[in-house]
Amino acid sequence: MAETTTKRRGIDAGGRRFQLEWAGVTDVGLRRDTNQDSFFAEYPLFIVADGMGGHAGGEIASQRTIARLEALLAEGQVNRPGIESALELVVGDIAAHPETTDEGTGTTLTGVFLEADGDDLHWVALNIGDSRVYLLREGRLVQVTTDHSVVQELIAAGKISPDEAEGHPYSNVITRAVGASELTAPDYVTIDVRAGDRFVICSDGLTKELTDYGIQHFLNENADPGAAVDAMLAAALENGGRDNVTLVIVQVAGDSSSTEETSEH
């Protein structure tokens, strides 16, 4: 199993000093030959991409998406316009590779970033596809993002229940992706910065194997993000590991004067 690294950094938000802690991991799983997932986790951007497409297409799509967004850090453009401009470039990147000739080649994209509002900071969650962002706040786990999928549309229309969605024949069909169709900007959700908040950013390889209750359980059992990442990955593999599994955990500790630190697990 891949080794995870926990990183820490102090930030100022709402007139208070907080410490961010984060860790991430990606694993091929037990049924796939290649890993089409990619992730990036460096302040202030934490994102996961789940590629799709035959041969190496999905892997290229997710890697190019991550590379374009990672470049925004050096340019100081980690904001909504910067992300959307980067995704426009990704579409051309995907089309330029001969391995991405399959009609369905593309990638999901989900994550969170910190956005400045004057002297304050707030979180912005973004999403395209069916990878997810969860937030554990005051002991309650909620799914922040809304899946862009056929089954989610059926649930919203009241035609099936969430329980029926799990075994639905269209459970793997998504309705929006980067590169697979006409470019669509991400959905965004703005969230205030609060001490104690914990985000889980993950591909569906995790949510195929762990319920929301399971995710909440492993968060509550493991205060350190690296330990929580390791525990969730191990459980996903033990439960079948039918797909690539990628997850990033970002959490906000209380007032702190700490500078950036790194520790391995």
Rank of each mutant, 00 (worst) to 15 (best):
V124I: 15
A95N: 13
R132A: 04
R137E: 01
S62R: 03
W123K: 08
T101R: 12
R64W: 05
G24V: 02
A49E: 00
T145W: 01
H97M: 06
S161P: 06
E99L: 02
S62A: 12
D33G: 12
I66W: 09
E84T: 12
P44F: 04
V28G: 07
R137C: 06
G58Q: 07
G76Y: 12
V90Y: 09
R132L: 02
T146N: 13
R68Y: 08
V25E: 12
L136A: 09
E59D: 15
L69P: 11
V133T: 13
D130S: 11
L87K: 02
D130V: 12
E84I: 01
R32A: 04
E103V: 15
D27K: 09
V25S: 13
E138F: 00
S131M: 01
V150E: 05
V48C: 12
A165M: 04
A74T: 06
F40V: 02
D163W: 01
A61S: 12
S149G: 06
S131I: 01
V90C: 10
D117H: 11
T100A: 15
E103I: 14
D120T: 10
E99A: 14
P98R: 05
V25H: 08
I155P: 07
H55K: 12
R64H: 08
F39C: 13
V133C: 05
P162D: 03
V142Q: 15
E42P: 03
V28L: 11
N172L: 12
S62M: 00
P162F: 01
G111I: 09
E84C: 13
V28M: 12
Q77V: 08
